[in-house]
Design a protein around this nucleic acid. Structure first.
Lengths: 210, 210
DNA sequence: CGTAACTTGTGAACTAATTCACAAGCCCTC
DNA sequence: GAGGGCTTGTGAATTAGTTCACAAGTTACG
């Protein structure tokens, strides 16, 4: 398969969430134009995005909503349940552990870790907090597929190295720091400070550009 | 000023965070090569990014750390304090309201809102939770510059419309839905589901590509 | 069955972003 | 003050991503 741009994958997620929405409302057919309008892009972009994976529509008619959403779920790897381990049971970690949106998409939190011995054993949502020492054995036993990092910036790289070494290949980090991983590991970072700075940049430079 | 790519702005944030880090360690000089290595990019990219805003280095020598970090803060609009209003005092909203990283970067949470009357008046961090009805008057009085949305997907567009109408020009949304704003409003969206789907896509399609 | 009205799928054209590559400038040493 | 060793700043070349534009299907209808 040709390399797929991250922007394309993001849009596929958007298309899928609309498809699920209109599917729930009983709509059975849609078009690239509908998807584009709802997703803030163009119909050509929608068709091009889908064309990387096959051809799912009928000329003159459009797309079958159930079929396309099922194909997108498959493409995005949502046909199975994914186990998520949350590392760091602070405010954000705890909020995520309880976040219902996880389950709706097939993600289940199977472990929460914290370095603070006082927290170990407490429940975070429905999951007991585990000691950081469990990280390697748990990972090797396949207790989770995806690591979500909600630890302080200083600790993040060390933990990334540990979970990568014991076999994790997908990491979502909320730590406000640049992390490095081997080429075969996928890392996504959500950095609040960076998002806010994008906004202040725009506020500060509005008018002079557009 | 020529239109600046979002990717460039994101990298400027990264460069700045490194500069602050090494500045704290007493380093006084750096090079595009250092910044590139730490930020996971190339030295040509660093120089090109900076070149959109001026020329801040000395050939043969590199960049003065204090000078460059100060210029970047200025470019990113961090020379002043920004007031943030958090709309939605659920788990994520509450976690953000207490998030110390905010203050470090010059952001101060001046208001927290919630639609649930039972929550109004309670404290979230050091700020009292206000009624949603206060949104318009508060916004018009300049109580906050940036709106952070942590409300359910269904409520998000309505609130965006309200704050935009009363003058807000920068919004950071955590609602898992596509939002639309006028061209003069900057919107950034953080969507957990989308990030996780980016990971499952990669996990599912590894091997066949790279 | 023919034609009109649609909508997809996709090369080709275009636009945006990144990387290359090198002249220009700076510091240091002799 | 000339030469060597560095590193910036930036046009040019390249690569990546988006948009255009249209042939090829599909349905509806007379």
């Amino acid at each position: 398969m040709r390399r797929i741009a991250e922007s394309t994958v993001r849009r596929l997620s958007i298309y899928l969430s609309f498809l699920e929405e209109i599917e729930a409302r009983g709509v059975t057919t849609t078009s690239s134009d509908d998807l584009a309008r709802l997703g803030g892009t163009t119909s050509a972009q929608v068709r091009k995005d889908l064309s990387f994976f096959g051809s799912f529509g009928k000329r003159g008619l459009g797309y079958s909503v159930p079929e396309l959403s099922s194909r997108l779920r498959e493409i995005l790897g949502l046909g199975r349940q994914w186990k998520v381990g949350i590392i760091g049971a602070g405010k954000i970690g705890a909020a995520l552990a309880r976040y219902a949106g996880f389950a709706e998409r097939g993600f289940v939190v199977t472990a929460v870790y914290d370095a603070d011995p006082a927290k170990v054993g407490n429940k975070s949502g429905s999951v007991a907090i585990r000691s950081m020492e469990r990280l390697e054995p748990d990972t090797r036993e396949g207790r989770f597929d995806i690591a979500v990092l909600t630890v302080p910036a200083e600790a993040a790289q060390g933990i990334v190295d540990r979970v990568v070494k014991s076999g994790i290949r997908a990491i979502l980090s909320f730590a406000p720091t640049q992390l490095s991983v081997p080429a075969d590991v996928t890392l996504r970072t959500v950095n609040m400070a960076m998002e806010l700075e994008g906004l202040t940049f725009a506020l500060t430079n509005k008018g002079s550009d557009n």
